[in-house]
Design a binder for these strands. Structure first.
Lengths: 157, 157
DNA sequence: ATCATTGCAAACTGTTTGCATCAAG
DNA sequence: CTTGATGCAAACAGTTTGCAATGAT
């Protein structure tokens, strides 16, 4: 039972250390997993993935480290439409494209005049107040049908 | 202990019945609350609001009815950034403007060439697959600072 | 020696379900 | 009389925390 003291990959070690966290084995495994896939894992899914790699981890340790890593900006975190936290390796602001059939989600950038999109009131009474908001950012959630589901739907029709 | 058999307001009764649900007292109170405010209530907040109006309700009844009402399209539902469900009276597709300081959220429409905003890959490997997605909708989450928080921040500086 | 990390178990929060009671069609 | 609504209590799922053992500096 040898204990690996740092990550195998210097890339990972550096990424963690750069944010002032110690690159412990648990953290390295988490970050490596996220970097190698472009998945948006829930904690539970990560646990399974790590278990399959023969590198299991306590659920408490996982949650503790996910919190630290995401607070430090080493990994990204958001809450899915089902209310469950999800984590990914992309920390820069980005957007999501979600398949309305299977729920799959891919990271995307938004091309086009995003800054030109402005909020306007749904309720007329909000008009005045809305004008005094300072709008700083826009995040777009694209929904549609992924290629795999399009094929499946066609076949079924 | 008289039992009100339908809503006081025909508007509310109709809205519920139009979707094939019986306008029971509990449902009427929920829908009335959402129509009268433009809040995005969590179930817990609704419970408090109803209690203050002297019309409390069992938490189970509340959850059961929120599920039915939102599935039937009588009310809108979404999951907030904290992972907690929130409900509002707006069922048409719309967008949100969120204060990054206090978390307040208002319903907005998106003005501008929203259809012109298109997803493009973050990872080059996704390029080919991304082109084959069928993009159907875009939802924008605006973030910024609300007038009240702007004032508070100014005062503090 | 000190401080951070790990991980088990227990606590907590938001949500759902089983079931008995009550009201409506 | 049959079906649906209510509400209490128990069950659940995701997440957090207390704490003791372990490992790193």
């Amino acid at each position: 039972m040898e204990t690996e003291m740092t990550c195998e990959r210097p890339e990972v070690t550096e990424r963690i250390a750069a944010r002032g966290l110690r690159p412990t084995p648990a953290r390295c495994r988490i970050v490596t997993l996220l970097l190698d896939t472009h998945e948006h894992y829930t904690p539970e899914e990560m646990l399974q993935a790590l278990r399959q790699q023969g590198e299991p981890m306590s659920i408490a340790t996982l949650y503790q480290n996910l919190a630290k890593l995401s607070e430090a900006g080493v990994i990204g975190r958001f809450v899915g439409p089902d209310g469950v936290s999800r984590y990914d390796a992309v920390t820069d602001p980005h957007h999501h494209l979600i398949c309305e059939v299977c729920g799959r989600m891919v990271d995307v950038r938004a091309a086009g005049p995003l800054e030109k999109i402005r909020p306007e009131p749904v309720f007329p009474d909000d008009e005045g107040e809305l004008a005094r908001w300072q709008v700083k950012a826009r995040k777009v959630e694209f929904t549609g049908v992924c290629p795999a589901c399009q094929a499946r739907l066609e076949r079924a029709s």
